[in-house]
Design a protein around this nucleic acid. Structure first.
Lengths: 236, 236
DNA sequence: TCAAAAGTGTTGCAAATACACCCATGT
DNA sequence: ACATGGGTGTATTTGCAACACTTTTGA
């Protein structure tokens, strides 16, 4: 095979090779707000501006592996069952002053309870969770990327079980409803919400109750399936 | 700015740079079947195997420009109002024996009537339209890519006006229904289909009729908007 | 006994589905 | 006059949206 590859009508080493980066948008619900993890850039370009964390892809890692590595470096989390999905690949020639950079973006959802100490990376002097409704001015085209990610996130939550990744394994129906209310920035009717969620059969009661205040205990539920699951869209 | 970029804690020239290719899945409806344009590879790897057309990204073109260039090279079509959308970026380290290739895939929809002479490219000894239900064995992971594209295409056709790009500017309601029936591989009730499509206000009658056989003439319609248009998913 | 959240059903409306016949045309 | 696809309306079902009160608990 090696031999055959020498007969190409072009030389591989003459083909233009851009830098390839992976950016990761890490979302979580913290204090009843949808927040995203941003870093303050320590080096040019956009030194000191807030930005989506990311890094260059290593020679022997897949794009998703690179995204998981970044996710783990930023949050200390490396679980397999975390929601992580490719978002879009940006490749405008002029988007990065360092030269041609193709940026493959991913977005991840993590439960607030699992966020440990945030780690400062070599290329970040600070790290901060920002509510998506109150973003600072961002480096590159990162504001647009976040806006696009929010559309996708809302859409995903409509027709998949993606919300499993914003909650603990065990949760109450009110917890789940709050997740939807925060992501969609609106309220839902409690009775209708429960009816609908239960009719989808993506969660099931675990038979336990939890007392969380001076009121009636709430039943606990879990997702039947902690992999991404798409409901049927087309009627059979 | 140039000066600042010299103080980086890393050397840009030491960072790994993969090859970046753009693959394009070109769909059209031909003879009542959903077909995709494939090329027979003239050079290794996968010499003589059928594959999705593609090529490397040029130094000064955006990813979408590269996709449009490939589309135009393969089909001779370069219209702006053609449906063209990014599909996914594949980057497994071992997917191409030539070395690390990141492949950004796009998919396009073109009307059968506009397909002219197919052009043979330098890296294709043959070009052929295959029905997606009868694909040959394909190079790389291209079978999976097509499968994924079909899911996206069906989904897009459910909640957008993407079908404008599979039809001529003027079409009958039966033409439109056939497009949906071919893509979803099922039939629809004529009355319900018309009611639904018309209620969406994405097409409008142009007031002309066309006689196409020994039967009553059919009214012609056009899409009100030949850019991608997403219907509202969330109720306000 | 009170405050606070949990839990639970029904009704009306809108949208989707199922379904069958007449119309305009060219031969 | 007939074969062919074009064109149309209604009844039924289903899913969504609006809406309010009782229960359980700890203080």
């Amino acid at each position: 095979m090696k031999k055959k590859l020498e007969n190409l009508p072009y030389k591989l080493e003459n083909i233009f090779k851009p830098l390839v980066a992976v950016d990761i948008l890490i979302f979580s619900i913290i204090e009843n707000e949808l927040k995203i993890l941003l870093i303050k850039r320590k080096f040019p370009p956009f030194e000191n501006a807030w930005a989506i964390p990311g890094g260059f892809v290593g020679e022997n890692e897949s794009l998703e592996q690179a995204a998981r590595r970044e996710l783990s470096e930023e949050t200390g989390l490396a679980q397999i069952d975390l929601f992580l999905e490719q978002l879009f690949t940006f490749g405008e020639p002029q988007r990065d002053p360092r030269g041609r950079v193709i940026s493959v973006s991913y977005y991840a959802l993590i439960p607030a309870s699992k966020i440990g100490e945030l780690r400062a990376k070599t290329d970040a002097s600070q790290t901060c969770w920002y509510a998506v409704s109150k973003l600072p001015k961002l480096a590159f085209d990162h504001t647009d990327i976040i806006k696009y990610a929010l559309e996708r996130l809302r859409y995903k939550m409509e027709y998949t079980n993606a919300s499993y990744s914003l909650l603990d394994e065990e949760f109450t129906l009110t917890d789940l409803q709050k997740v939807y209310e925060v992501v969609f920035a609106r309220t839902f009717d409690k009775r209708n919400f429960r009816k609908k969620i239960l009719s989808l059969s993506i969660i099931e009661p675990i038979g336990k109750k939890v007392v969380r205040g001076v009121h009636r205990p709430a039943g606990l539920y879990k997702f039947s399936n902690r992999q991404l699951f798409v409901k049927e869209i087309i009627e059979p």
